[in-house]
Design a protein around this nucleic acid. Structure first.
Lengths: 339, 339
DNA sequence: GGCAGCCTTAAGCTCTGCTGCATTCTGGGC
DNA sequence: GCCCAGAATGCAGCAGAGCTTAAGGCTGCC
């Protein structure tokens, strides 16, 4: 195999026109260059330079190799700039898995900011459902996954979790419900109420059950819907009450009008909470893109958490909590596993 | 600058999937590969491999560099095959300068054989006139030049001359000339004849003058034409006699018919001769292409010299001795210089 | 004919780079 | 739950690549 280092030296000799000039340009002694050329000629099996009295002259083979060295040099320079772009975050790609209610309020704004700050980065967002995204992250098929996970969940080896926000559950009641008159409810106030389930088994539902359990009761789910928007519709229809996380509330920000279908009330003592985390590979080197995206996620989460200051009677009509308005299966509950 | 050797090792690691496998494929120990990868990461300034428990996984930067290494590897392989083609004579180029009367009988058949034996070789033939081709050869702008040169001419430094043939001069006489009755003339027989000059000053004319000088006379040029074909026309018109080298005789081989315009007779005692040589750079490495072409030249010259066995009365109609039939300025006399 | 410039060769030395071995860590099997 | 195989890395050591200095041969110019 031809030594590319020597080919670069040959290129210098050919462009400079002499061994001495090439040595000067490269910071070597003429002797070093001469020896390298002799070695390269042995590798090539044919003369590359024609010793013509005073000075040298490239042979056809020498010109060929020098041209090739130039092309390779260009290629390497290209690789270096591409590498620098990657290193500084000017280019790159990131693969993100999210679940529906986290899409609109967290993933989307974070991605928007990432694309603003790093326009050259290609991002691939995919809805988690119905798979558990954690194996995808571990296997390296995705870089970041938004998951719901308990604070005290056991660590998963190979993964690192960064906390984004605690999404507090609110009680959703029919406006005519007696408890709707109060501004704040205790969880036990709902112990005897018929519940509209909005979550499939998973960490989200676990958060609700845990809170109810510590409040001393088990909710009586009279109907189970797969997503928060539908559950709110059931509440509006008077079927029962529901516990819906803030990010799952159907409440287009700034849109307060509409026919009143339900009211939202804070719940305390205890307040059910689901924790939303970003999962990344523990071994993944944190480049500028990943760092920027995690930062954007955190900021978007803080924004989303702060945006629910004075939630009160809101009207619900349509529109699921999903990303892009696809009113399908909301509320994915990626399991952080029993492991 | 990125070390391309290390990039090739990185490529092996990425394609193999592990340091150990790459080491096995490359014939190294895993330790060596690991150290090279560490060095390359330092050069790149960013992690290239993600250490993931058991085994490694390329990062985006690692994949980028590995892809680039693949491209470079292809490029080098391409260069190697091109080099091998050049070395074995499958490709190449050769630049040849010739003079008109040598074109048809020597350069053309030699080139034809070269193209038959080395179809991939590009040849560039150029007529010498009106320049002296020797500086072109010395400067490397041409590889081979056909020249006329005395056997005892002093060597030109930097050039090597290979003898191709001695082109013997023949007497060209009007058919009605008294000497036309004889089969062979002595040069002195022509001493008193009016001569039709066919050559510009140069080694060809020198050969004639030398021979005449040693025969004891100086030819009396009553008319000077620049080429052999025209000179033969003058002879046919009865203006005088001419001395024309065999290769300059207008005699389409195999075509004996036509209106008789002149006769050709051998001349001896002494027989004027011009020596035709191929000049190449002394320092030029003799690759297969050059070697093959010189061999073909020699064979073509032998063929051409042998083809004039029984020259006798021949008819001349048209057709110059030039290459391709361009009946222009024939008889170029490249000077081998007074040096 | 002498001199300057260029390329080369020889000897020596530095440093890269590979080997061998020990260590650490993970993942699977018993 | 323990143990072992497999994989990567770190360290000492050595061989060889590669650079430098010094000297020599050659060419071209003054």
């Amino acid at each position: 195999m031809l030594d590319m280092r020597r080919m670069q030296i040959l290129r210098a000799v050919v462009t400079s026109g002499s061994v001495t000039a090439a040595a000067r340009n490269l910071g070597y002694t003429p002797s070093a260059v001469s020896q390298q050329m002799a070695a390269l000629e042995k590798e090539a099996g044919t003369p590359l330079l024609e010793r013509t009295g005073r000075g040298v002259r490239p042979t056809d083979a020498g010109l060929l190799l020098a041209d090739c060295a130039t092309a390779i040099g260009r290629h390497v320079a290209h690789a270096e700039t591409a590498l620098a772009d990657l290193r500084t975050g000017r280019t790159g790609r990131i693969s993100v898995r999210y679940f529906a209610t986290a899409g609109a309020r967290v993933a989307a704004p974070a991605l928007a900011r990432l694309r603003r700050e790093h326009p050259g980065v290609r991002a691939e967002l995919r809805l988690t459902d119905p798979d558990d995204p954690l194996p995808e992250v571990k296997a390296g098929r995705t870089d970041v996954a938004l998951v719901v996970r308990r604070h005290d969940a056991p660590p998963v080896d190979g993964l690192r979790f960064v906390h984004l926000l605690d999404d507090r559950y609110r009680a959703v009641l029919p406006p005519t419900h007696p408890l709707a008159a109060r501004t704040e409810l205790r969880l036990t106030d709902l112990a005897e109420e018929p519940f509209v389930g909005s979550e499939l088994p998973g960490p989200c539902l676990d958060a609700v059950l845990d809170a109810c359990g510590s409040a001393g009761f088990t909710p009586d789910f009279v109907v189970e819907s797969g997503d928060y928007a539908t559950a709110q519709g059931f509440v509006a229809a008077g079927v029962g009450v529901a516990l819906v996380p803030e990010m799952g509330l159907v409440t287009a920000p700034g849109t307060d009008e509409g026919r009143p279908g339900w009211v939202v009330r804070e719940v305390v003592d205890p307040e059910p909470v689901r924790s939303i985390w970003a999962a990344v590979r523990a071994t993944a080197p944190e480049g500028p893109v990943l760092r920027a995206f995690l930062g954007a996620l955190r900021d978007a989460a803080a924004e989303a958490a702060g945006g629910f200051g004075g939630v009160d009677g809101v009207s619900g009509s349509g529109g699921a909590g999903g990303f892009g308005g696809a009113g399908g299966a909301t509320s994915a509950h990626p399991g952080s596993g029993p492991a």
